[in-house]
Write a protein that binds this DNA or RNA. Structure first.
Lengths: 210, 210
DNA sequence: ACCAGTAGTAGACACCATGTCTACTAAACC
DNA sequence: GGTTTAGTAGACATGGTGTCTACTACTGGT
């Protein structure tokens, strides 16, 4: 007796899988409720017993995924140590590889991008929290606003993850992508482009004559 | 005689503005063709004389914007000098501020994210091209794959730009955001978080016991 | 100033997907 | 084994889509 009728769980899983595979094939907006129930081999009326509409189903898929991810990250998030271990990022990429199709649907911004936004916002909030804890723990003052930092970092992750998940077949292991991403993010683009030392001071560069 | 009937130009502009404002209010998917023509004060049939459907209109909005941006960036893109001037980024952010509403619609990922994807891909291709030219010009070997570099960089830009355009009212000037973004991107997150020196070697960190 | 061509319009149309409901059957739970 | 709950087929009103027709009004070229 795990909280729910066996039939319900089966149905929800079928609907979820059908939506994901169809969205990958045709794009979310070109998938109808009938398409979904047909592929899931269920009556159309059954759909509406579980979800108000297509968007509700997608929204549920995202929040389930976020919850699962959260549980996997919990034991890895730096609490006392607060260093740059990179373990959470690695776990994120491993999770993405396991749930590749769902991630692809979300990262493609299907469904008016609300799914992607929800995902991004959750990751950004988590990153900002870690950054704040780290700054306090090491008694260090960030040189750039922490929220901007978090957004940029998550933006990087997601952009690279999107590319990585769409390459067929995936050539890089989760360890390899995560490694590149961390090197790039921590050391910066000046280093990544192959230059040595620090970048030139941009103070006068960024403000031309105008 | 600028290539097109005066009425056509007027109509297209009205449809464009109506779509953008409505998409901002209700979200793209909750906007109907009739909504658009009503706000534009045009007959519904007129819409179909110009565009096949709602998606075609949005797609046109994006490509027009990209073309306009491209023309503004052309004289700024480093050709002979090939340095880290940051001028193109600044110009991008200025353009975004001027066309704030259109950028917001696109960056929100409206319309199944195809608009955002088109925008992202265009910027990524441009960035990759500059990176390649720079590497060659300075005879330097990138430490990270240039396509990954370009994707991450554009991902950062877009994530920060999204946040910046959604803050009401915009508190930072284009010069200020661009400055933060460039500092962060070129120097890296280790520096941005407030630490001095270089980040710890991650070689053993990223590969734990497993 | 005119006129040929093109843009805008109202209204009608068939079509399709949506979301709701009913009366029924089948499965799960205890 | 009996009660509850899930799945189902089919019907329904609704609302947006994309097309078309016959008409009016404006514009650009000469």
């Amino acid at each position: 007796m795990s909280t729910e009728d066996r039939r319900s769980r089966r149905t929800r899983r079928l609907l979820r899988d059908a939506l994901v595979s169809l969205a990958l094939e045709r794009g979310y907006s070109h998938v109808t409720v009938e398409d979904i129930t047909e592929r899931a081999d269920l009556g159309r009326a059954t759909f509406y017993k579980h979800y108000a509409d297509k968007d509700a189903l997608l929204s549920r898929v995202v929040s389930d995924l976020l919850e699962e991810l959260h549980e996997r990250l919990l034991p890895l998030v730096p609490t006392s140590s607060v260093g740059f271990t990179g373990k959470p990022v690695l776990e994120l990429f491993r999770h993405a590889l396991e749930e590749r199709d769902v991630y692809r649907v979300i990262l493609r911004g299907e469904g008016d991008g609300r799914a992607l936004q929800e995902f991004t916002d959750a990751r950004t909030a988590a990153a900002a929290q870690v950054f704040r804890a780290r700054a306090e723990h090491h008694g260090v003052t960030p040189r750039i606003d922490i929220d901007v930092l978090a957004r940029a970092w998550v933006g990087e992750q997601i952009a690279v993850m999107r590319w990585w998940l769409e390459t067929n077949p995936p050539q890089l292991s989760p360890e390899e992508v995560t490694g590149m991403l961390l090197d790039l993010s921590l050391r910066g683009r000046y280093w990544a482009n192959g230059f040595d030392g620090g970048p030139p001071d941009r103070a006068e560069e960024i403000r031309p004559e105008d």
